[in-house]
Structure formats: structure tokens, C-alpha cells
Design a binder for these strands. Structure first.
Lengths: 223, 223
DNA sequence: GGCTGCACCTGGACG
DNA sequence: TCGTCCAGGTGCAGC
């Protein structure tokens, strides 16, 4: 598994880039079980430009991302964690017109915060710690040994102590709505009306409507 | 009606350019009733360039093309026949941003197949034969006496015997879906969910959704 | 009004 | 040759 070894290399060679509150995740974890690179994509100019979308190569999308709901009118919402512990939500859709899978809403914020340029690499992992987590990282061009070094905890005051998945969802919804509208809404912390998807052992919420709300589990999707 | 006389002139001066299967359309037709030039437009560099759209001069659009639905989200679909009998579908829209009427989807294929360049002329006619038909033709720069000579029946195996409007619709839908997805779908030849528009005595189907389906007449629109 | 998001579109590359 | 994929675009609505 050459890819996997490469991941291990650049990931573990800069352990200090991991945040304090996540160091415990790696205690005693030396083997392949703890993390798995799903795929990487070198970013094209369009991926980091004004189109505000990331094209997910079809073979990776169909292998690693859920198929259920992605073709629906609004696609579905993916929640991924970066090395700082921040949760990133992206709308994940299939565009029949171009026959491609894309991340749209939320992607431009990621590009901006991580200062991504064409030629940089975005990568998707799942990490086992208790349950699995979905992880998104990046590596800047010419910086082969380090992933996700652009954003540190100093940029992400939220979630500093959010370890439980459920807690992260609540915090996330709060921040998401602040980011989106600049307005705090009363129902912010108690969403409903979404479906829960279990992916790589991680519960993901998604919904066909805008203004997502938290949830009872209704759909279970396992790889 | 000077325009009309001009049409008669260049059109009938090269009768051999008309296709065999359509020659019967002109049998016994000598008067103005059989065909009418709606308008011509000399093509600009943008009309034949990478913008993949034809701007329809507003006065012509509003006089000759339907107003109902053109400003809608998807515009509407116009089906026009060329001299070879091939049916061309174009998305016809009004762009509020530029306040112009345009043909978009389908236009670039027409430009390519007819080998149109800036300075060439595209023309729109209605022809009476039984019911009326909408017709699209072109005339290359420096070739004032001939319209639509660039494409012959040798380029258009489809529709060679499609004379009835209904038959043309079925064939057309089949081709449209082939173009869009590259996949033949079982419901291809039996569209529904579209609206029917009667324009210049010709039934036109249009729909707000992709993947159109054939239809019972629901809307009747008469000029 | 600018930016984002969205649905749609097309040409080029390539197997 | 032809279908598939995707990079690079569009207009426009909403925030």
C-alpha cells in the first residue's frame, strides 16, 4: 500500500503540527488501523478559483463517498474534520450535466482559510479513534512532508474541547449559521429534519433542504 | 414586403440545394403563403465564437418568438428545421443581466456543422405546408444567392423521412438524451411532463426540467 | 453590490 | 469512432 506509506511519512514527520487536544488520539497508535488515506487530489486552477467548487474524481467519489442522496436536488452535506479539530461542512452533489461529483457550498471557505493554490493537494482520510472520523487535509505544493500546516489552533477557537461527535455537530450548526447569514437564529443549536448517514463508522447528517437541522438517526449507511 | 421578395430571390435561385425529400413541399407553391422570412442576422464574432450563444435582436425576438416562458428559469426550447430536414433544438432565453434574447444550448453545434463564421447570415423562416414549420437557415458571406448549402442530407442520416411533426419530436428527444448523457434510456421515446406551445401553427414542446419526456398537449399558444 | 452558490453547458483529452 | 470524464466556463438568484 504505497499510498498509505506515503501518508504515514508526511503525516508523522511533523507531529507538532497536530493540536494538543488531539495528541491523545495517537497514543499507542502506530499501525495502519488508525488512519487511512482515501484519496488525494492535486488542485486545479478551477478548484481554487472563482467557481467555488471542487471536482471529486468519479472513481474516488463512487468508492469513498455515499451514493445515496448525492444525486438529489440538493445533494447532501458532508462533515469533515481537519487537523486542528475544526469541522468543515461541504455540500456534496452530483451534476448530471457534467457528470461529475463536486463539493460546492463551503469549499471556497476552505480554500481561503487554508490558502490553497493550484498545485496544492487536498486529501481525504478516515481515522479510527473509538469510532472513525472523516478527515480533510491539505498539503502545499513543494511541501511534500507536511499536511495541513497552514491552519493552526490559533485560527480555530471553536471546538477546542469538542471531542464527541455529537458535540461537534451542535457547535458546527451554530457556526455554520453564523458564517452563512451573519445572524444567530434561535433554533440554531437544535436542528431537525435531516437524515443521518453512517459513513466509515461516523454519523453524518444530511438533508435535502437548506437550513439544516439536527436529527434523529434515520438512515444507516455502512461501508 | 421587400424582405420577403429578397427571400424569394435567393431561395429559389438555387432550387437544387433543397433536399429530395422536401421538394414536394414546394410543388404548386408559388405565392407568399408557402414561406415567410421572419428575420436574418449577420453573425458577429461572438455569435460564432466561444460564447456558444446567438443574440437575437430584441425587436425580432419579441415580434416572432414566444414571450411566454422565455424569461423563466430555463427559458424554453425551440425546434427548427433546416433544409436537409434535420431538426435543431435550441434553448431560447432572455438574459436579464444583458437584457438580450439568446439561443444558447444547441447553438454551438449548429455553428460547427454549418461552418459558420462572422459575417455569415443566419435566417429564420416559417413555411406553410399543411401546418407551418419553423425553419432555420444560413448563408455564407460572399454567397448571396444560396442559403443553407453547407449541410446536405449526407450529413444528416436522422430524420430523413421525418415529415410529421410528432415523429420529429420523438426522434428529437432520443437524440437529445443521447447528447446529454450518452446513455439510452428506456423512457427516451415517450417523453411527458413538457408543455406544448403552438407557434406559427407549429407545435413546440418545452419543459422546465432536464430530461424532457413526451407529452399530451397542455398549453396552446397561438400567434 | 459583491460574493457565493447553484444548475447548466461545452470542448478537449483520452481510452 | 465514440463515449466518458472533467476543467473551465455561463447566467442568475440570494444573501
Amino acid at each position: 500500500m504505497a499510498q498509505h506509506h506515503r501518508l504515514q511519512a508526511w503525516d508523522w514527520e511533523s507531529p507538532m503540527s497536530f493540536q494538543y487536544q488531539y495528541q491523545h488520539l495517537y497514543q499507542g497508535e502506530q499501525g495502519e488501523a488508525c488512519k487511512e488515506l482515501m484519496f488525494e487530489k492535486p488542485l486545479t486552477p478551477s478548484d481554487v478559483g472563482k467557481l467555488n467548487r471542487l471536482v471529486i474524481p468519479k472513481q474516488h467519489a463512487e468508492r469513498y463517498f455515499p451514493l445515496d442522496g448525492v444525486s438529489g436536488e440538493k445533494g447532501l452535506l458532508l462533515s469533515l474534520e481537519d487537523d486542528s479539530g475544526k469541522i468543515w461542512q461541504f455540500r456534496y452533489s452530483y451534476w448530471t450535466s457534467s457528470q461529475s461529483y463536486v463539493l460546492t457550498k463551503g469549499w471556497s471557505r476552505f480554500v481561503k482559510e487554508k490558502r490553497l493554490d493550484a498545485g496544492d493537494v487536498v486529501l481525504f482520510e478516515r481515522r479510527r479513534v473509538g469510532g472513525d472520523r472523516l478527515y480533510i487535509g491539505c498539503r502545499h505544493r513543494g511541501d511534500p512532508a507536511a499536511a495541513n500546516t497552514a491552519a493552526g489552533p490559533w485560527n480555530t477557537p471553536y471546538y477546542a474541547s469538542s471531542v464527541s461527535v455529537q458535540h461537534q455537530y451542535s457547535s458546527l450548526h451554530a457556526e455554520e449559521q453564523r458564517d452563512e447569514t451573519g445572524v444567530h437564529k434561535s433554533e440554531t443549536v437544535a436542528p431537525s429534519n435531516s437524515k443521518r448517514l453512517r459513513l466509515f463508522g461516523v454519523n453524518l447528517d444530511y438533508w435535502p433542504e437548506p437550513e439544516p437541522e439536527p436529527v434523529q438517526a434515520s438512515t444507516s449507511w455502512l461501508i
